[in-house]
């Protein structure tokens, strides 16, 4: 292909990637090393607010940001180095907690609390998603052609639901005397509060994520199952291989590249676990790294937001994902080299 044609084809997508991925990333990277703040001056202000019948007026010293002649906020931007990272990681406190051997104290630090949950969540849901996905794929593959369409449709449904909406529905099913909690209470004949302690919320979150993502794994595996070499399977049957042995020694090795692919996608997605925290309003018990970033970023009622710490936290999340992906990537790389 002539270079010009090639450039015309990939140009737009490179432009989009620069605009929507590279540029924001560079901007976040730069913001994580800077702090931008208004210039405050202390002035005495009299504020009158309504009481029930009469007004209350108070005069007090308030920090008021300075405006320039155009009425715009004066803002200064300072380089702070790794300060924002230090504020997020709180390494000093973490070390101190670990030195005293107190896991509880360590888990009272937001970042490490969030990291603990994020990693648990990611690593526990991964095998479940792969296993359940493979199971669904095998069921679809073995279903008779007549019902296959409807079975695929039904098993894909959870994946179609918007994540936040799905999480909210689970919340409502289990919250207070929600339908499923009420059923469980009746069945076990005891009072159950699913949202009163961390571990029940964590189990619900993981179940929800597996329910939501397994169909994606299933559809990928199902596609892979269509290309399994039938001759190998037949020879395996002739050699007397059981159903399990055929799965273990013929089907799974064939699906391996797809399993690595689903693993990578799942690691990337679940390390950014967020919808579950919001949907279950679990932040009193359980928080995730992505939620922490969001919490820094969202303005409080007086309009303050911690953009520098949010940027630092976002960069740390990215680093975490890269670390997690190293193992599957190395595997793919080795196979790629070995295959040629």
């Amino acid at each position: 292909m002539p270079f010009k044609t090639f450039a015309a084809f990939v140009g737009p997508s490179i432009f989009m990637m620069l605009l929507f991925i590279a540029f924001p990333l560079a901007s976040v990277f730069s913001q994580s090393f800077h702090v931008t703040q208004p210039v405050y001056e202390i002035v005495e202000v009299e504020t009158c607010t309504p009481g029930f019948l009469t007004q209350t007026c108070i005069t007090e010293e308030k920090s008021v940001p300075k405006l320039d002649e155009n009425g715009e906020l004066i803002k200064i931007r300072r380089f702070v180095g790794l300060q924002s990272y230090a504020n997020v990681l709180e390494l000093g406190r973490a070390k101190e907690a670990l030195a005293t051997g107190s896991w509880q104290a360590f888990q009272n630090i937001d970042f490490w609390k969030a990291l603990r949950f994020t990693l648990t969540f990611t690593l526990i849901t991964l095998p479940l998603v792969l296993g359940v996905g493979l199971l669904i794929a095998l069921v679809i593959n073995n279903a008779s052609a007549r019902v296959r369409g409807p079975v695929i449709f039904v098993s894909l449904l959870p994946f179609i639901i918007t994540p936040v909406i799905g999480a909210l529905s689970i919340n409502w099913l289990f919250r207070g005397d929600g339908i499923l909690t009420a059923t469980l209470e009746w069945w076990l004949a005891r009072d159950i509060a699913m949202f009163a302690q961390a571990w029940t919320i964590e189990i619900l979150m993981m179940l929800y994520r597996v329910w939501h993502v397994a169909p994606f794994a299933a559809i990928v595996f199902y596609a892979g199952l269509q290309t399994v070499n039938q001759d190998s399977l037949e020879s395996a049957v002739i050699d007397g291989a059981s159903r399990w042995q055929r799965l273990r020694y013929v089907v799974i090795p064939h699906l391996m590249p797809l399993i690595v692919f689903v693993t990578m996608i799942h690691l990337m997605d679940s390390y950014r676990v967020f919808e579950e925290v919001v949907g279950f309003s679990s932040q009193g018990h359980v928080i995730s790294l992505q939620w922490l970033t969001y919490d820094f970023l969202i303005p409080d009622q007086a309009g303050n937001r911690s953009i520098s710490r949010a940027s630092a936290s976002a960069m740390l999340t990215m680093i975490g994902i890269v670390l997690l992906l190293i193992a599957p990537l190395r595997r793919t790389w080795r196979e790629h080299k070995g295959g040629h």
Binding site: S63, D295, D300, Q301, A302, G303, N304
Partner: peptide, 17 residues
Amino acid sequence: PYPASGPMGIMHTALGN
């Protein structure tokens, strides 16, 4: 009255978390 101010916005968030 609720003592609304810039610092109070930050305090409210810190308390809430």
